[in-house]
């Protein structure tokens, strides 16, 4: 059984917004910056745009607006940027970073007016945006009322619960990352096992099986009941930290479980993966991390990326 407090944290994972056909210049106006960017953490990501073929934009909580655009758009826009680091010899993609919280970025400055002109008149860019805003104070307008002229939709993350019965779980030791035969499993084995559980792969195959030879890493124990919760949506880091804190508190009272995990998948088409590190798609664009929290509150943080991404922090 899940503790009530954990359930309520999951239920309160926060809503996010989908704004259709939002011109990018709306995000750089002083009004928007003052109302949202400077008053909390504002997150925006273009929806249904592919980082390897379309123009893409993201607003980071530190107030930076990142545009990842193809060569033609870049030349039409006329804003300063840099070539994408994954574009090879013939540069076909450029990254433009605009710091909205910069002291020199105000309505009287040349830079502000140039950016606004470029995005409003020179090359108007329009996207469907996923938006989320987090602030500690409750005052101020909300995204919903601010964008009421636009087509805005409030969305709740999709939450699914399931209980897995008689699940084979690898044995882990928090101070042993590489694992030892007969004693504990390594972090890579755990990572593969997690994938197998989430994809509903059968865990007990024989080495002679024709179909599949995958089996649960050794040593393992059979757990009578395991709880699996999946939350899908545009989820902001603040909420993930809240969830993580609640998960740590889960071990505040003695529990039978030895460890628990929390996996976070990043958007494959986001222009950044970790902080402001550039992200590309290549073959899959996956960027994800996973926390393994042990009963004694030791933890592992596993981070995985593929080509077209920098090494995570």
């Amino acid at each position: 059984m899940l503790p009530e407090v954990l359930k309520s944290t999951i239920a309160d994972i926060g809503e996010y917004y989908l704004v259709r056909n939002l011109p990018v210049h709306e995000l750089v106006t002083q009004e928007f910056i003052d109302a949202f960017v400077k008053k909390g953490s504002c997150y925006a990501l273009t929806y249904k745009t592919k980082i390897d073929q379309d123009n893409t934009a993201a607003l980071l909580p530190n107030g930076k607006l990142i545009l990842s655009v193809d060569k033609d758009t870049y030349e039409e826009l006329g804003l300063q940027g840099r070539p994408s680091q994954y574009s090879g010899k013939k540069v076909m993609r450029y990254i433009i970073t605009i710091d909205l919280t910069d002291a020199g970025f105000h309505p009287e400055s040349k830079k502000y007016n140039r950016v606004l002109w470029a995005l409003r008149e020179k090359k108007p860019l329009e996207f469907d945006f996923l938006l989320a805003w987090y602030n500690t104070g409750a005052e101020g307008s909300t995204l919903m009322s601010y964008f009421s002229k636009n087509q805005i939709q409030a969305l709740k993350p999709k939450i699914t619960f399931s209980t897995l019965r008689d699940l084979q779980c690898p044995v882990l030791k928090s101070n042993d990352l590489q694992g030892k035969p007969e004693e504990s499993c390594s972090t890579e084995e755990l990572f593969e096992w997690l994938g197998a559980v989430l994809n509903e792969v059968s865990l007990d195959n024989k080495s002679s099986s024709f179909l599949s030879t995958y089996c649960c890493p050794e040593p393992n124990t059979v757990v009578e009941k395991a709880f699996l919760c999946t939350i899908t949506g545009f989820i902001i880091p603040e909420k993930i930290i809240q969830l993580l804190e609640q998960l740590c508190c889960y071990f505040g009272e003695p529990k039978l479980a030895y460890w628990l995990t929390l996996t976070v998948h990043g958007f494959a088409d986001s222009p950044v993966s970790w902080r402001e590190v550039e992200h590309g798609f290549h073959k899959g664009g996956e960027n994800l991390y996973n926390f393994v929290i042990f009963r004694n509150l030791d933890y592992w943080l596993q981070m995985a990326v593929v080509a077209h991404d920098d090494c995570p922090p």
Binding site: L177, T187, D298, Y299, L301, Q302, A307, D310, P312
Partner: peptide, 19 residues
């Protein structure tokens, strides 16, 4: 990042925190 190579096909990092 020591000698980062863009042809790397995957990176897997594990942080371990034992208080």
């Amino acid at each position: 990042n020591p000698g980062w190579d863009s042809t790397v096909s995957s990176v897997f990092v594990t942080w371990c925190q034992t208080a």
